[in-house]
Structures are given as C-alpha cells and as structure tokens.
Design a protein around this nucleic acid. Structure first.
Lengths: 121, 121
DNA sequence: ATTAGTATTAGTAATCATTACTGTTTAAAT
DNA sequence: ATTTAAACAGTAATGATTACTAATACTAAT
C-alpha cells in the first residue's frame, strides 16, 4: 500500500489513545493536523488500516469504534461514565466446552462486561 | 399501554422465529399481515416492546436484531452461514474474578462466539 | 530530474438505518 | 355516543457510512 500523509496521521491518532475512538472523533482530531481532510478519507483509511490488520474494530452497541490493541482481549463498559476499558479474560475453557458440546469451532470470542467501574458505587 | 393490532402482529413475528430478526425483516413480515403498516410503526413498537421487557435487543456487529428470549444467554455466530444461535454459557466465575481483580461490578455479560457451526467444516 | 501511471484525495452526492413530525384514526373510559 | 389521548400512516429529517468524480501526489521507470 502506497504511503499517504492522511493515513499516517489517522494511524497515529488511533495509536495515541486508549479511548477506542469513533470515526467522528478521529475526524475531529485529524482536522487539527490537516484542516481540510475529508470525512470520507477518514472512513476509507480506517477501513484500510483495519483490513491490513494495523488496527481493529470494536463494536459498542450500535457504535463502531477503533482500537490499536490487536492482542486478543475483551472489554468492560461502565454504565456510569460510558468508558470502555480493555481487559484480558481467559477463554480456553469456553472454546473447548463449545467445541465438545456443540461441535462449533470457535475462532474468536468477544466478551463485553457491562457494569460499574470503581470510580462509582 | 393501550392495545394495538400493529404491536400485537409485531410481537407475534418476533416470537415466531429463532433467527434474531432485524427491524427490516420484521417490517417485511408485518406487511404481509398489514400491507400498509409503516416502518416507523415497526421501529416504535420494537422500542416499546423492548422498553417493557417483552423482547430484547441483540447487537450483531453494527446490525441491531431482536430476540424474544430474555433469559440470560449468549450467541454463536457462524462465519459461513451468518446464522446466530443461542447458547447458555456459565459466567459466575467471570463475574467474581472481575469483581475481585478489577473492582468492577458486572451487571451484564455479553459473549459472542465467532466461528463455524457443524454444518460447515 | 522528468515523466507517466495510478492510488489517494477533497468535496459532494447518495445510501442506509433510525428517529421525528403531522394530521388522521382508533382504543377505551366516561 | 362522546371524548381524549395513544397510536397510526405517511413523509421528512437525521446521523453514520459509502460511492462518485475530477484533481492531486506518491513512486517507479526513464
């Protein structure tokens, strides 16, 4: 894939945060570096970066977010502050169990824990 | 909540399938019973039925789907046929572990297993 | 360094899912 | 039967994402 300044800026934005930003948030950030960057450019490059495995998509309800962390991991979503935090949960047992009991070959496990983080009560 | 024929038809459609239908699919079905039913009516009633706990929403990537099964359960999504099947997975250990290790009070656990079901190889 | 070829871009229009609005209909309480 | 508000059909508006197009800018070959 050919170099582009826009894509590089977008990549850096994703890699600079743990907040799992939306396309819109990336767009706002990107405009600070490249004021006339187009929203379409943001979407196109987010897709390309995802396709080539540089970043990944996470789904927060109907919201699409992006994440630089490609290691297998899960998420905790706080209902009070809305923040989504990474967490690593074991799932080997889950995979085995499903394979044995349902003959379903699991390639990926997505776990989202919804609740309240320690900043609230 | 006042009775409405439209809502009753929509409710029956959801309860008649295990396919976790989208709003659009429900709309298409509903038109067979009530040809001039409005898409807005479908959305409004799906929301009402969800709010009153008669049905529930499940998220399939960016797609919103509806489900009559309100028991706590998870989903297996087959990458070959796209079908989403219910499965009950234990998660008490998960909750305890997260509470102890991260001081995060889990109210809901959403697990989606992505892989291949036994109809494919 | 110049050129040529094509991926990428900005800007805009189009699409898709969902929600909001509005005047009319209808359930259901009096 | 009359009244009242919830629900409706039809349509417009919104928000997220994708598609289109003519201009621009990487990059490889000259």
């Amino acid at each position: 894939m050919r170099y582009s300044h826009q894509r590089e800026v977008i990549r850096e934005i994703i890699f600079s945060t743990n907040s799992h930003p939306s396309a819109d948030w990336v767009y706002a950030k990107a405009r600070k570096a490249i004021p006339n960057i187009s929203l379409g450019t943001v979407y196109r490059n987010l897709k390309q970066l995802t396709d080539q495995g540089t970043i990944r998509v996470i789904q927060d309800g109907p919201l699409t977010r992006y994440d630089w962390n490609k290691d297998p991991h899960d998420h905790m979503k706080c209902t009070s502050c809305g923040r989504m935090v990474d967490i690593e949960l074991p799932n080997d047992d889950l995979k085995k169990m499903v394979k044995n009991q349902h003959d379903f070959e699991v390639s990926d496990v997505e776990i989202t824990l919804i609740g309240k983080c320690n900043k609230h009560d």
